[in-house]
Design a binder for these strands. Sequence first.
RNA 1: GGCGGAGUGGCCAAGUGGUAAGGCGCGGCUCUGCAAAAGCUGUAUGCGUCGGUUCAAUUCCGACCUCCGCCUCCA
Length: 468
Amino acid sequence: MSLKLFNTLSRSVQDFNPLDPAGKSVDLYCCGPTVYDFAHIGNFRTFVFADLVRRYLEFKGYAVRHVMNITDVEDKIIQRVRENKTTLREYTGKFEAAFFEDFQALSCLRPHDTPRATEYIADIIALVEKLVARGIAYRAADGSVYFSIEKYQGCGCRYGQLLKLNFDEMRPGERVSSDEYEKESVADFALWKARVPDDGEVAWPSPWGEGRPGWHVECSAMSMKILGESFDLHLGGEDLIFPHHEDEIAQSEGATGKPFVKHWVHGAHLLVEGKKMSKRLGNYYTLRDLLGKGFSGREIRHLLLTAHYRESFNFTLGGLQGARAALARLDECADKLKEIAGTTTATAEPELIQKVAAALDEDLNMSRAWGEIFEWVREKNKLLLPDNKLSPEQAAASLGAINKILALLGLEKAGAEEIPAELTALLEQRQAARKAKDFKRSDAIRDELKAKGWVIEDTPKGPKLKKL
RNA sequence: GGCGGAGUGGCCAAGUGGUAAGGCGCGGCUCUGCAAAAGCUGUAUGCGUCGGUUCAAUUCCGACCUCCGCCUCCA
């Protein structure tokens, strides 16, 4: 089975085939965070989605090179640096570190390369020079360099590959900042922004005078430097389709004359509690906010992975409770299998893995994959309870399968917590009390354990302690 | 105004031209000294509204309603 993915270039689901003639390696670029503040849950939907793409490609046997940029120079950052009377590096370093902490809390695999824009200034300048030399970019009177869409189209290139553009009908200018009035045409965009007083110390020398890179150009410069002028996959949030990604294509193809990216995939946004996230509505959650409410990164990741990536998804606190319950059901089944399997090992049974892979092959249909997983859980539960019908070998094979799936999804269960000896002693006392029919005492011990955060599970084979 | 996406049970969410996966929640049952936990089980004559095509539509077509995204530095 081969992977099918939606491609924004064709606006349709198509077979994914890497550029590598051997069909073995895949180069993947995902637009990363702008490190001006803590990232919110919407940002992380995109990164978890990108992580799923990477993990699934690796699962299918591809050697993936995953690159994600860190945007560490940009208008908002400069503004914050000014307000906080700090330096660019100090300011962005703090939020970059926070970002990777959050990233890890969600079990996202660290990309192989995480280039910072400020460390690729020379490459950015070289790319802009190339565009200027080809006559596609021009220096305006204010010292900024702009990309000319007219000249680009004059070279036989197409602007508007990711979406239909109709400049006459568009509402121009609402968000054009006042420092861009030197442009020849409203559609043109900045490659290099001349230094202005508000920039403070944030500036680099260039052939056009001091300044800093435009936003879109960093992704073109860094992705091509690391992955080459043409590569397989470029991911990002759907809001980046225009202008960011369209401009990336223009800059890259304008400079190289080669197709930039073969396959563009965009993740949809999410709503929070049914509404667009906003600080005013109180439904703006950073990852830290959610962790602070007691939810785990694993629960949050599970919830983000329940819906299809191209559908807008309603993220709710109630949904997180549901994620917790769903994961508990899964873990419970795995624990029971583990108990039966003991130290026996066996090859993972292939059926579940095949079904989940078949679902993911269809444009990463996670909802269908979950359907398969939970149907499998029910089937296993029927064999395990009320009395086990599985041999240790069978249980080990089943356990191998579910563990492989959880690893694929980045939802491995953390190691079980050790039960303190004093609690085990209490549990034994309760059993003694029950045997003596002193239920008052046994219930008191049960309450005591519950107060300590542990619940007793009385099974036909005796009591077990479980962390709440 | 232009371009694009979406409306499926109490909530979340798949899917299909032939009669609705899965998760959460809720009810029932099993187990239990009682509970809890766990498991099993039940839970949409219906897929925004109104028309049309068809032997058959939630699925195709048209109109309408509602919601969401992008339209020059937002994941």
